[in-house]
Nucleic acid binder design. Structure first.
Lengths: 196, 196, 196, 196
DNA sequence: AATGAATGAGCATTCATTCAT
DNA sequence: TATGAATGAATGCTCATTCAT
């Protein structure tokens, strides 16, 4: 009970601190202070600093995965499912700027820091996109010449970059609806003009 | 002359080192050794470590900007221009994995490290996309309801994420042509099936 | 009863752990694990880490003292008594390599760690040598110009160094008998050749 | 020139600090302060803390080796050579209490800390004893049934323990002459009374 | 301009000790 | 008595930056 509580507190504190300072500028003592535990306590729950990063990343993404899957399963049309994915991702990142930051920065760092990067939660997350596209292709809604594994990267990258801007204080900010709508248009209908 | 030479050598060395180790794990002495100069010499050309990062970033991007602009100006059709941008970016990143890495990692770090992130070369680079789309809209080739400033982020993000995979050794690698073709299809024609 | 049992278990565990890792590299949790008690339990029986060291040292030496005194008291001839001391010490150290290690390392550390080093069991132990020599001098068996208090150090040092080698894995190992015989020869008869 | 100077200063400071506090209680910053250099400077000359210990040990012993060999080579009689070794060792340790401490403590630690302990300066040092004894045996001055490799340990141990007492402030102190004379008597003539 | 030896602030991690249960 | 989670002081080592040459 208490242990689980501490674990959660540390993860949550680390998310906040990593978001604010970035992984390398974050000090363990910052996380400890934010979590209101002693420095040493952190090492009762995590092996080292990178382990905290990995945990934050995996656990936070797991939450979006569950959330997204739930919303998507309630909908049958692949087009709608894709829209839901897009809007959910953007909403989530706009609401959880800390998580967005951590994903922005650490997804890139992690390639170097975390050895085996295959079977991670991140891949599970973007595979949701691939699944939706595949289903759409089976139902002849989406073009068969689109490779789901490239498309998933393309869409994720687009969403990621758009939401990145929300963490840059000086930029013009678009709303989730506006950005989501734009991305949906581009991906689903393409950019070409004049069509029925 | 000699000074300029050293400057170039250091930038080039730094790109290599940052790419290999990431900004925080890169040591000034690594860069100095790679550039075959003394550690102290670096401080004759740059103020500090972040200044090197900023310079690497700006100068490398400037090179792509010049390169891309040249190729695009030779073509009139916005669709073709967009294709050129896409293929050029991907080719460049596949060829210059170091630069790709630096962009991948440092673009995100830099939000925190580099104070004023508005008038940078990076923005100049993605504004090329916005310009092409704007031109396309003027020529009634692209839909008017697409906002160029969101579209530029969307496309850049897509390209960035797709090329990120090339630096992850364990992933399946797509060719530049395949990836470029897929992105063009999605962005220009959309993903919907059965159209004229 | 139970308390005494725990005390013994901890002392015994500490001897093993100190021997294996040395005082500074030994962790309280190592000792606790070896003794199969909780870390905190150790502090019910000892004040702190140094207190454990001191206790280990004193109690282990006390055991040799009792053992040695028993064997010596059964013998009248000081020459034989000295031989018994020599052989007993070497046998004991060869059998209890842990104790040997603790004596080797900690006897030296302790000078710094343990404030008042006079009335310790260690002094009681080497005083056995002094007593034997004194008796031998009274019985005109040993030379009167030997100072028992220097001789006790000399002999103990010799025994200590010879047994130290048994804990260095790569060295050539002599048997207890061989080493004991050599030390007896040197100390009792001296190294000069050609005598009746 | 300067580099060599720093190296010497650090070795000398480390000897002092190790002697005063022992290896584990000595802080790098203590050594740095004593040597009047910055903490980081130490790492320009040594790889790590243990490397300093090893260097101190080896370099200090090397000095005694040179010193002792010189004195011994001037003398032909093995008995005299042995006397010289004994007195020289004791004098050296009484004068250099820091070195004595370092030898006392670190010789034992090092078994655990320093991996390959065979070809060290220490072995070179005590082999001087073995050589003297071997020569004496060839010249039929020393008994042939004494094994030089055991005898060298025996004598070194005796000297070591006797000089250890000089670093324990509360003990009665013997003079070098007295202690040396006693050890010579015991080792060369044995302890038996009434002989020609 | 160029060097590289020297600096010293900074930080992840460990572990003896405590104390609520 | 006994536990073991929690504490937080302590420290070896790194590396960006400086500066005498």
């Amino acid at each position: 009970m208490k242990a689980a509580n501490k674990h959660v507190k540390i993860i949550s504190a680390a998310t906040k601190v990593f978001a604010k300072k970035g992984f390398f500028n974050a000090r363990i003592s910052d996380i400890a202070k934010e979590a209101k535990v002693a420095d040493g306590t952190i090492y009762l729950y995590f092996n080292n600093k990178i382990d905290i990063l990995r945990s934050v990343f995996e656990e936070e993404i797991d939450t979006i995965i569950q959330h997204t899957r739930k919303l998507i399963s309630a909908e049958g049309d692949p087009r709608k499912k894709l829209e839901i994915f897009i809007v959910t991702h953007l909403s989530y990142m706009k609401k959880n700027k800390n998580l967005a930051e951590v994903m922005q920065i650490e997804l890139r760092q992690s390639t170097k820091l975390i050895k085996d990067y295959r079977n991670t939660k991140f891949n599970e997350y973007i595979d949701i996109i691939a699944e939706i596209i595949y289903q759409g292709q089976q139902q002849k809604i989406f073009r068969k010449d689109i490779l789901p594994n490239i498309a998933k990267r393309t869409l994720f990258g687009a969403l990621d970059e758009v939401s990145r801007v929300w963490n840059i204080s000086l930029e013009t900010h678009y709303s989730v609806e506006e950005a989501g709508c734009q991305i949906i248009k581009m991906f689903i209908f393409g950019m070409l003009d004049s069509r029925g």
